[in-house]
Amino acid sequence: MFIRKFKKEDAEIISKLIERNLMEVNIKDYPREHMIEFASYYNPETVKKTAQEGHMYVACENEKIIGCGAIKPFNSENESIIVAFFILPEYHGKGVGKSLIKELEKDEIFLRAERIQVDASLSSHIFYKKMGYEYSGGIAKSCNGENYKMEKFK
């Protein structure tokens, strides 16, 4: 496995990867109509826009894209946010997410920030906790039952 920066031609594959994750993993915790809406939001154009707003990385096995994640500025120069972080379902628990987070944490947008936020899904907050992210305000409570606001301070 290796991690590289996003290329525009990756957008279609990443859009489908996100849709698969939402419809196979996240759908266990959320209403189907919300996952369909979220998947349609992450169309190839939105993926490209997300990459332009910050830095997006893709995890690959040989030439196959198996995961993605982006870091971008958030609120101020002292804050950044991790977005569009998804791993193909069959690669969950195999270290892909951990490697991708480590790559994002070497990025200049991460390094310049004092605080990094991630809006973790109901199924992913345990992963982020293992990666050193804490629940905002120290409370492990989801926001409106939809996600967990998590953060890391440097």
Rank of each mutant, 00 (worst) to 15 (best):
R115N: 13
A113T: 12
E33Y: 12
H34I: 01
E61R: 03
G138C: 02
A140Y: 00
P31N: 04
S76H: 12
L122A: 01
K102Y: 11
S40F: 10
D107N: 15
E61M: 09
Y57S: 12
S99H: 10
N43A: 12
P89G: 04
A120K: 02
K130H: 15
K130I: 01
G137Y: 10
G137F: 12
L100M: 08
K49H: 08
E105G: 09
D29E: 14
C60D: 11
M131G: 09
V58C: 14
M35R: 06
E53V: 02
G97R: 06
Y135W: 12
E77N: 13
V96A: 13
Y128N: 05
I65N: 04
R32M: 07
S124E: 01
G93W: 07
S80F: 08
N144F: 05
V96P: 03
S76L: 09
M131Y: 05
S142V: 02
L100N: 00
H34Y: 13
E53N: 13
E45I: 04
T46H: 07
G54T: 05
G138P: 01
V83Q: 07
Q117I: 12
K72L: 15
L111C: 04
G67N: 08
C143Q: 12
S80N: 11
V47Y: 03
A51L: 04
T50L: 05
A59N: 11
E53M: 04
